[in-house]
Structure formats: C-alpha cells, structure tokens
Amino acid sequence: MKKSTLLFSFMAFTILASLYTEKSKGIASLFSQNATLKNGDLIFHTSQSSQSQAIQLATKSKYSHCGIIFQESEKYFVFEAIQPVKYTPLEQWVARGKEGKYVVKRLKNAAQVLTPEVLRKMKAVGEGFKGKNYDSTFEWSDDKIYCSELIWKVYQRATGLEIGKLDKLSHFDLSAEAVKKKMKERYGNKIPLNETVISPAAVFESELLITVKSN
C-alpha cells in the first residue's frame, strides 16, 4: 500500500475517532450534574424508529418515546419498553434519540409521593414487565407493553396516580399517509378503534408533571 494511502487512512481514522470522542464527551457533559436527576423522573425524546413519524403525526407531538429514570449505585438508567422491556444506560438512551435532544419531567410533589418505599414498589412493579416483548399493536394488556403504557402502569400501580389521560385509538389523528401505512401494516383492515391507549404526548402533557431538565 502506498504511503499516501496509509497516511489518508490514518487521518480519516483519527478524524472519526475524534468526532466519536467529542460526541461521547458531549453526552456525558449533559449529565455531569446528575444531582438534578431523581429516581422516578420521566424522560422523553424523539425516537428514530420506523414508527416514530406516525406516532408524532397521530398525537401532534414531537416526542414519540419515553421511559423512567432510576439510579443504580452512581449510574443512571432508563427503564423503557423497547424490544424487550429493559434498563438502558442513560447516556446510551439519550444518544439514541434524534439529535440527542431530550426533556426530563418530574411529579410536582415528588418529594412527598416518591418515598423510598414507593420507589421500591415502582421497581417491583417494573420487574413484572421486565423482559416482556414490545407491544407494536398498542393493546391495553400486560402480555406485551409499549413505552408510555409502561410509565402509566408503573406509576398507577405503585402510587395510585394516573400520569396522562387514557384515550381511545379513534381519538387520534389517523389521516396522514404515514399513519395509514403503519396502521395497515399493524392491523390490516381490522383497526381496533375502541382500544384504550396512552400516548407519550398524553404523559408529557400531564398536569401532574413539571419540566426539570432539557436541552
């Protein structure tokens, strides 16, 4: 191999490594003040999954994915419903979203509600969902589960609070072509319009929450 080719390859590798390092530093710096995060906080971002656009159009919100933040030792994780339901390192979760943008929300009275005992109960409820398959048809059952459904059920069963208003699938805007295509893909000609659903947008807009961090 010619020296010029070797030099070019080395320079390209150096540039890519530098970009990756800077991105990693940038993500880490977002959470350099982890004291602002608390167990039970909710985090939202715009997913880059194939269904994200349909969710955004149907719910009139740019936020299409969400999860619950929990701390283990000195690290933070997002408990989320993907495939399968699992704990994802916080920095990895943020990096997976569009442009690394996110919003963190918290119960207005979190200090009073989210006691150590309640947080233990939340984790226990969550353990019942851990490892379950992602629910791509958004059914209101515990057999499979999707992101906002996970949040709603963990909070409701551990605290009695309903984070976001339950709705019917028919109440969303299903007119966009991207939405129609995804619905056809998931349901064929039998769309369950009366299915109970909870969207990321409904959780995000809950009056029980306040925004504590965003970028």
Rank of each mutant, 00 (worst) to 15 (best):
G128K: 03
V78Y: 15
S64V: 11
K130M: 11
V179T: 07
L119K: 05
A28T: 01
S18A: 11
A178Y: 03
K108P: 11
L193F: 09
E177T: 10
Y20F: 01
L42P: 06
K3T: 10
E91N: 11
F31H: 12
T59Q: 08
I43R: 03
D135M: 11
E80R: 09
A58S: 12
V103D: 01
F172M: 09
H45P: 00
F204T: 01
N39Y: 03
S47P: 08
P89F: 05
W152H: 14
T21F: 15
M122G: 02
C66E: 14
F129I: 01
M122T: 02
C66L: 10
L208W: 13
A95D: 14
G67S: 08
K184G: 11
I43P: 04
T21W: 14
Y87T: 06
F172Y: 14
C147T: 08
Q156R: 13
V197G: 02
S199Q: 01
Y187W: 02
I43G: 02
W93K: 11
S32E: 13
L19V: 05
L166K: 15
A124S: 14
A202R: 10
L209D: 05
T88L: 07
D167Q: 15
F172W: 12
E185N: 06
S18M: 05
T137E: 07
L16E: 00
E139S: 12
S29H: 05
V103L: 05
L37F: 05
V125G: 01
S170R: 08
G97K: 05
T46D: 04
R96W: 10
D41G: 02
P116V: 08
A54L: 04
V113T: 09
N39M: 00
G131N: 15
M1D: 10
T211Q: 09
L19D: 01
V85L: 07
T137Y: 08
A95P: 03
A28N: 08
T88H: 08
K130I: 06
T5W: 10
F129S: 03
K180H: 10
K182Q: 09
D143Y: 08
V113E: 12
D142T: 14
Q56K: 14
E195C: 08
S175C: 05
H45Q: 09
S206Q: 05
K182A: 09
T5V: 15
F8V: 03
F8P: 01
K190L: 03
D41A: 04
K182P: 04
Q33E: 14
V212E: 03
Q92F: 12
K62E: 09
K153G: 00
T211H: 00
R120I: 13
G126P: 04
L90T: 04
T5H: 10
T5S: 11
L90E: 06
T46G: 06
M183I: 15
L209M: 15
G126A: 14
K123M: 15
N215D: 05
A81D: 04
E22A: 15
A202F: 01
S32Y: 12
Y63N: 00
Y187L: 08
R96C: 06
D173R: 04
K86V: 02
L193S: 01
Y87D: 14
L174T: 03
F10D: 06
E195M: 07
Q71H: 04
V203N: 02
D142W: 12
K213H: 07
Q51N: 13
K23Q: 03
G128T: 06
E117R: 04
A28Q: 15
T14N: 09
S24A: 05
Q48D: 09
S64F: 15
G188Q: 10
